[in-house]
């Protein structure tokens, strides 16, 4: 088991002193090497799930397990990536990729070797001495993925990593990410609001309800070519799956 949520509830206290239940009684498992997407309406606590997996904060009730260890704080098993690339602008690309290794006692020469290998895998060989501002948005996200993979995490958490990109770049980057992830065999949790993206990239999709978020449906995507979303994209079944999620999100009722 790579990741497990056992009846996890998370409450926040707002600025006005009210209690806000972000997610309520969440249960799910992600198996080793599986690619699972979490979709749901905005504000349903998708990012809360990610932060609890990364150990940035603890559930109010329930437990989160990563590789059979209970998560009690930031840990070496998890690498996460956000919509913002979060590259350090004052570092060149290769030292940005090394950033995650620095606090882990990896020797300098090994850090450089691992960073260069990840850059190559993410199709950024030759750009190691560039600074972030010199790269396009898609390349910067690939650099962020290289940094995430460099720490050799057991789970990769992706929080809407493609949502700030234009439509074409998005398709190409989804393809590139899917290929890289399939190649490394990493367990991946993708948080997204893009239904098509979830269908194209995942083995399984968890649909969350509005706040307080709970898992309302679990959809197994039974399609080939997970490693190549561009090929999955042309399959007729894709729209059926998207329609199915659409229904679970009860979006028709909201459309006026």
């Amino acid at each position: 088991m790579a990741l497990e949520f056992r009846s996890v509830t998370k409450e926040f206290t707002t600025g006005t002193g009210q209690n806000l239940v972000a997610v309520n009684d969440i249960n799910f498992r992600v198996n080793e090497g599986e690619f699972v997407s979490v979709v749901g309406p905005s504000g349903c606590g998708k990012s809360t799930i990610l932060s609890m997996t990364a150990g940035l904060y603890q559930p109010t009730q329930g437990e989160v397990f990563v590789s059979d260890d209970r998560v009690s704080g930031p840990n070496a098993h998890v690498g996460f990536m956000l919509q913002k690339d979060l590259l350090l602008p004052w570092r060149n690309i290769v030292s940005n990729v090394e950033f995650g290794l620095e606090a882990r006692g990896v020797a300098k020469s090994e850090r450089r070797d691992r960073a260069m290998a990840e850059l190559k895998r993410c199709h950024l060989a030759g750009f190691e001495n560039h600074y972030p501002y010199q790269l396009s948005g898609g390349m910067r996200q690939r650099a962020a993925l290289a940094r995430t993979l460099a720490i050799k995490p057991e789970i990769v958490l992706l929080d809407e990593p493609f949502s700030a990109l234009d439509a074409q770049t998005k398709l190409l980057l989804q393809n590139s990410f899917a290929g890289t992830i399939a190649q490394t065999g990493k367990t991946t949790l993708l948080i997204t609001h893009d239904l098509a993206e979830a269908v194209l990239m995942s083995d399984r999709i968890l649909v969350l309800s509005e706040r307080p978020g709970t898992v309302v449906a679990e959809i197994k995507v039974d399609l080939p070519h997970r490693e190549e979303p561009l090929r999955r994209r042309v399959m007729p079944e894709v729209s059926d799956y998207a329609a199915q999620i659409f229904k679970h999100l009860k979006l028709e009722e909201k459309a006026i």
């Binding site: 990364a54 150990g55 930031p74 070496a76 996460f80 979060l86 350090l88 995650g100």
Partner: peptide, 11 residues
């Protein structure tokens, strides 16, 4: 978010 990233990397 940068600080959180650094925290997640155990800095």
């Amino acid at each position: 978010d940068l600080v959180n990233l650094a925290r997640a990397y155990n800095l």
